[in-house]
Amino acid sequence: MHNDLIALAGVMVRNSVLLIDFIEIRLNDGIELKQAIIEAGAVRTTPILLTTGAVVIGASIILFDPIFQGLAISLVA
């Protein structure tokens, strides 16, 4: 159970860090905060979805393994 939470937290933190980093870069370029947030969402959504899709596909492979089944279920969900 705890491994599941750690894996999910890792995915969420990585995505959050990427968004915040992109926003900070845009703010340093002189873009206002609201516009930087909108651009971050528009530009980073596709890579985040692709990464999440890769996690789901990878977890689907181990879905039927009795040892890692709990982790796979939580990652796919």
Rank of each mutant, 00 (worst) to 15 (best):
H2Q: 13
H2K: 15
N3S: 13
D4S: 15
D4Q: 15
D4G: 14
L5K: 14
L5R: 14
I6G: 08
I6S: 13
A7M: 05
A7G: 02
A7E: 03
L8W: 01
A9F: 09
A9E: 13
G10N: 03
V11Y: 04
V11A: 13
V13A: 12
S16A: 15
S16P: 03
V17S: 09
V17A: 12
V17R: 12
V17I: 11
L18K: 06
L18E: 11
L18I: 05
L19C: 07
I20E: 11
D21M: 08
F22K: 09
F22Q: 08
I23F: 00
E24K: 09
R26H: 06
L27D: 03
L27F: 01
N28E: 15
N28H: 14
D29L: 12
D29R: 12
G30Y: 03
I31T: 07
I31C: 05
I31N: 03
E32Y: 11
E32I: 08
E32H: 14
E32T: 11
L33T: 10
L33W: 10
K34H: 11
Q35T: 15
Q35H: 12
A36D: 01
A36L: 00
A36W: 00
I37V: 14
I38L: 13
I38N: 10
I38F: 08
A40Q: 00
G41K: 01
G41I: 00
G41S: 01
G41Q: 01
A42F: 07
V43Q: 04
V43R: 03
R44D: 04
R44S: 07
R44Y: 01
R44M: 12
T45S: 14
T45K: 12
T45R: 11
T45L: 15
T45P: 02
T46M: 11
T46P: 05
I48W: 01
I48E: 10
I48N: 09
L49H: 03
L49C: 06
L50K: 13
L50V: 10
L50Q: 12
T51Y: 07
T51G: 14
T51F: 04
T52Q: 07
A54G: 09
V55D: 07
V55R: 02
V55S: 04
V55T: 06
V55P: 06
I57C: 08
I57E: 07
I57Y: 05
A59Q: 02
A59K: 01
S60W: 08
S60P: 07
S60G: 15
S60V: 02
I62R: 03
I62S: 08
L63G: 09
L63P: 07
F64Y: 06
F64T: 04
P66E: 06
F68M: 13
F68V: 05
F68G: 08
Q69D: 09
G70N: 15
G70H: 10
G70K: 13
L71M: 02
L71H: 02
L71S: 00
I73D: 05
S74C: 03
S74K: 08
L75A: 08
V76F: 06
